[in-house]
Amino acid sequence: MTNAPHISVQNLNVQIGNNLILKDVNINIPDKKVTSIIGPSGCGKTTLLKTFNRLLDNTADVKISGKVLVDGENIYDPGAEVTHIRKKMGLLSQRPFPLPMSIYDNIAYGPRIHGTTKRKDLDQLVEHYLRATGLWDEVKDRLHSSATRLSIGQQQRLCLARGLAVEPEIILGDESTSALDPVSTQKIEELFLELKEKYTIVLVTHILRQARRVSDYIIFVYMGRIIEFGPTEEVLLNPQEELTREYVKGFIS
């Protein structure tokens, strides 16, 4: 690992109701790389992702212990400012959820709440991020129509652009292509590869081929524990643990 860790998880335990979802998780997520979290459904991979931007806090009956350090600061420190932490991370959820407003306002939403109010600045930002996600040419004539009229694939790219517009350092993707058609999926994957120049990217995926295509590192989670962590090729082609071997067998054969 050449890069210093961007997110460092230490002794993390998550309990929802009486179920222990994550058990004693320790992991360092490298800076400016794509890291994929893989594992069977229900293993806790989405939960792990949601602990990074503290969205898990809003779940009923949840208990979180341990530390998550982002840039060396514990985000679960009682004095930590949640909105500040979340601003550092863009989240791309399973299905696109455009805010109930126009395309323009979707992108401008983040910058506006964070203090950019000048029309000219906003215009520039909107164009910049729509270009960055390859949407500009498709929507430039209808910036002020409702975002819900876009196709699902376009909506997902809009959501990515919206997340980028708050200038995060980290992008979290929660099976972000699972609702998309192959062409849109490919576009999103290409964007991830471009974006890793500037951002640390953490993806949850259940598609091993996707993990192989886009990620530099892989975390394999099983029953709430981290079983294996390492560079993509090593984990997929030469797993050290029996459980990982079992899981990736389908991928290889």
Partner: peptide, 10 residues
């Protein structure tokens, strides 16, 4: 939807 706004730092 709520999460989306929150994760933009709202």
């Amino acid at each position: 939807l709520h999460d989306a706004a929150l994760s933009l730092g709202a």
